[in-house]
Structure formats: C-alpha cells, structure tokens
Lab assay of single mutants.
Amino acid sequence: MEQGTVKWFNAEKGSGFIERENGDDVFVHFSAIQGDGFKSLDEGQAVTFDVEEGQRGPQAANVQKA
C-alpha cells in the first residue's frame, strides 16, 4: 500500500485526487473509499491506498483513512 495526502475531493461529484509520497497525483473515486457511511475525503487528510490502472490512467483503490 502507498501513503498519501488528499489534494482535493469534491463530495458532490464523488471524486478528487490524492498526492502520492512518491510519484504523480492519483485520481480517487468515492467507490474506492473503504468504510461505512458517507464516503468522502477531506483536503489534507492522510490516507493509505493501492494503485490500479483505470480507464484514464492510474487511480486509487482500497482507500483507507490513515
């Protein structure tokens, strides 16, 4: 798993970007967020995640709040 920080997340659209510790920013969709309840992330929040190849390039998967 990688570690990173939420660069921004739009709760209305359900997507945003995570700033990786090593590498380019990666797209995140709300469906990749693990946990119960409303799936959203806050700017500056620390997260851990896997990276998968999506239709438009790398994207975060199995996102967990650190």
Rank of each mutant, 00 (worst) to 15 (best):
M1T: 13
E2C: 14
E2A: 10
E2P: 05
E2T: 09
E2W: 15
Q3H: 14
Q3I: 13
Q3E: 09
Q3A: 11
G4W: 04
T5H: 12
T5F: 13
T5G: 02
V6C: 08
K7W: 02
K7R: 10
W8Y: 08
W8F: 08
W8T: 05
F9M: 02
F9T: 00
F9P: 00
F9Y: 09
N10D: 11
N10K: 05
N10L: 05
N10W: 09
A11C: 14
A11D: 05
A11F: 11
A11I: 11
E12S: 13
E12W: 14
E12G: 10
E12P: 05
K13S: 10
K13L: 10
K13R: 11
K13F: 08
G14I: 03
S15R: 11
S15H: 15
G16A: 03
I18G: 00
I18R: 00
I18C: 06
E19D: 05
E19N: 09
E19A: 15
E19W: 14
E19F: 12
R20S: 06
R20Y: 07
R20Q: 06
E21N: 11
N22R: 10
N22Q: 10
N22Y: 11
G23A: 09
G23V: 03
G23F: 05
D24L: 12
D24Y: 10
D24F: 11
D25I: 13
D25Q: 12
V26Q: 02
V26G: 01
V26R: 02
V26K: 00
V26L: 12
F27E: 02
F27G: 00
V28L: 07
V28F: 12
V28K: 02
V28E: 02
V28Y: 04
H29T: 04
H29C: 09
H29L: 07
H29S: 05
F30T: 01
F30Y: 11
F30W: 14
F30E: 01
S31F: 06
S31L: 07
S31P: 00
S31E: 02
S31Y: 05
S31H: 06
S31V: 03
A32S: 09
A32N: 08
A32G: 07
I33R: 00
I33S: 04
Q34S: 10
Q34H: 10
Q34C: 13
Q34G: 08
G35T: 09
D36Q: 12
D36N: 12
D36C: 14
D36Y: 12
G37W: 06
G37A: 07
G37Y: 06
G37I: 07
F38G: 06
F38C: 11
F38L: 07
K39P: 06
S40D: 05
L41E: 02
L41T: 03
L41K: 00
L41S: 02
L41H: 01
D42Q: 15
D42A: 14
D42I: 15
D42M: 15
D42G: 10
E43K: 15
E43T: 14
G44E: 02
G44P: 03
G44M: 03
Q45H: 08
Q45L: 08
Q45G: 05
A46P: 10
A46T: 11
V47A: 03
V47K: 01
T48M: 11
T48W: 14
T48F: 13
T48R: 10
F49L: 04
D50N: 14
D50V: 14
D50H: 13
V51T: 06
V51K: 04
V51M: 09
E52Y: 14
E52R: 11
E53S: 10
G54N: 08
G54H: 08
Q55V: 14
Q55H: 12
Q55R: 15
R56G: 09
R56L: 10
R56H: 13
G57S: 05
G57A: 05
P58L: 11
Q59V: 11
A60R: 00
A60S: 02
A61K: 13
A61Q: 09
A61T: 12
A61S: 11
N62V: 03
V63G: 00
V63Y: 01
V63R: 01
V63A: 02
Q64L: 09
Q64H: 12
K65Y: 10
